[in-house]
Structure formats: structure tokens, C-alpha cells
């Protein structure tokens, strides 16, 4: 099934923000499965909106989006069984005294039915996932007391510990230091290689994951480009999205993009 059904199948999609502005319009594309894909574009280009729509969290105003053949509106339950989701970091409420282990175990327990008890197997998998982002020593630490980069690593570990063939990560590298970035990128790359999973990653900066991703979707409220990383790193395409100040730099056989853009999108 995985060989034939596309990971994402989008037909003439249009989505509005809650304030009524058009976030996405005339979006149509298809991504094969499995894939490590990146959705890139500047702030406000509709990247997060696209993934949230695919999970059935937002209702499209026109068109359809299918994940592994399941319609995002009619079959969202089926999609959510497959998906492990890492929301933008500031979506996690820090007023609740959660420990690092509680957050990582969430990934496992959310896929169970109440009363959602953690078995010793769950705990072993959660510890292993933390180890992959080099955080296993902080198992008992209060989550709200961690630095931004550490919190992000814990959230990635939550996704690694969970079950389902699709990992969806919304800006997992935003506001993290180089060490955290490298750890997250390496862990995701390794996980994709060793397991039969797809990874969909929203990011404003393609460079850290450039050598790992297979498909890149360049978005500015509609599809500007779709292809391999180096073909997307086309000066004309990039300027169209990021403005005339964007530059492409070639280094050891790969093209990298330099923009002034950084930070997290916020649309509440």
C-alpha cells in the first residue's frame, strides 16, 4: 500500500486564517510515500496552515487534501492514527508541572485508550527516544525549566517515542541553538533511514536539513516550487518568495539559501 498511495495528495486547496484572510489558494500537488519532505517559505506563507489542514485541525474553504489516501475532513480519525505531531514550541503550556518523562510518554499514551497506563515497554521506548536527542539524563527534570532548545528536543523525542508512519513537525528548529539543531536533524535523518516512516517538516530555513530531505515544497500562499532541494534552490524561485535580498550560495556541491527571514509564524 505504501508504494502506491501518495503521502500527500492536494487538489485545488484554499484555506482561510481565522481572521478571514486567505492563507492558501490554488494549492495542488502530490508527494510520494515514504518521503522526508520539507515545507519552506517565509513567515505567513501558509506552511503551518497546510499541515494543520492535512490533520483535519482546520477546515479548508475549498478543495481537498488527502494523507495516505484519507481525506482530511472525512477520515481525520484514520489520519490521526498514523500521525505523530510536534506543534510549534510556544503551543505547549508551561503552567502545568510536567516532567520531561511526562511529555515524552504523552507520545505513547496519546495513542492508547483510557486509562492510558505506561507499561515498562513504554518507559523503555521513551528513554530510548530521549537518548536519541541526548536528553536521557533530564528524565526527571521539570519541562518548563528547560531552555528553548532543550524543550524542542524533548518534543522531538515525544514524536520519536510515539507510533505511526508519519511524523509531522512544525518549525522544530526555530529558536534553537546549533547543538540542538544538529541533534534534532541527525535524529530525524537516522530515524527516517532506519524505519519505514515519512517525515513532514515545516521550516523557514532549509539549510540544516538540506542534505537529508527528498522533497521540498516552496510555499508562498500557493505552490511556488516542488522538487529536490537543489532544484528548489533556484535564485529566481527563491527571490520570488523571500524577496530580492535572498542569495543562493554553492558549497561542496550543494546549494544553500541565505535570507533575512527567521522566526516562528503566529496566526491566532
Amino acid at each position: 500500500m505504501a508504494a502506491t498511495t501518495p503521502l500527500l495528495q492536494v487538489r485545488d486547496l484554499a484555506v482561510r486564517y481565522s481572521n478571514g484572510d486567505l492563507a492558501l489558494h490554488h494549492v495542488s500537488f502530490e508527494i510520494k510515500s515514504p518521503s522526508f519532505m520539507a515545507i519552506i517559505g517565509p513567515n505567513g506563507s501558509g506552511k503551518s496552515t497546510l499541515v494543520k489542514t492535512s490533520l483535519g485541525l482546520i477546515k479548508p474553504s475549498r478543495g481537498t487534501i488527502k494523507v495516505m489516501g484519507y481525506d482530511s475532513q472525512k477520515k481525520s480519525g484514520k489520519i490521526r492514527k498514523l500521525v505523530r505531531y510536534v506543534p510549534q514550541r510556544d503551543r505547549i503550556d508551561l503552567a502545568i508541572p510536567m516532567k520531561v518523562k511526562d511529555i515524552v510518554l504523552m507520545g505513547r499514551l496519546l495513542k492508547k485508550l483510557p486509562p492510558r497506563f505506561a507499561t515498562s515497554k513504554d518507559i523503555a521506548i521513551a528513554k530510548d527516544a530521549l537518548q536519541q536527542v541526548n536528553m536521557e539524563e533530564l528524565w526527571e527534570r521539570p519541562f518548563p525549566e528547560l531552555s528553548g532548545g532543550q524543550r524542542q528536543r524533548v518534543l522531538v523525542a515525544r514524536a520519536l517515542a510515539s507510533e505511526g508512519s508519519i511524523l509531522v513537525l512544525d518549525e522544530p528548529l526555530a529558536g534553537t541553538d546549533v547543538e540542538s539543531q544538529n541533534l534534532i536533524v541527525e535524529a530525524l535523518g537516522r530515524y527516517h533511514k532506519e524505519n519505514d516512516v515519512s517525515i513532514i517538516m515545516v521550516t523557514h530555513d532549509l539549510n540544516p536539513i538540506h542534505t537529508l530531505v527528498e522533497d521540498v515544497l516552496l510555499l508562498k500562499n500557493t505552490v511556488i516550487g516542488l522538487g529536490e532541494p537543489c532544484s528548489i534552490m533556484d535564485p529566481e524561485l527563491i527571490k520570488k518568495v523571500y524577496g530580492p535580498t535572498a542569495r543562493i550560495v554553492e558549497h561542496s556541491g550543494h546549494r544553500y539559501c541565505m535570507t533575512h527571514d527567521s522566526g516562528i509564524d503566529r496566526h491566532d
Binding site: L55, L57, R80, Y85, I92, D93, M98, I103, P114, P115
Partner: peptide
């Protein structure tokens, strides 16, 4: 656990199928 998850991360909990 569900009440805690709703408080901590409503969006993520929904996306994981809760």
C-alpha cells in the same frame, strides 16, 4: 491524564487522535 494533556497541548493531543 486527558485533562492534563488538554491543558498542556490541545492541538498536539487532537493531532495524535485523542
Amino acid at each position: 491524564k486527558e485533562f492534563v494533556y488538554v491543558s498542556v497541548d490541545m492541538e498536539g493531543s487532537t493531532a495524535h487522535g485523542m
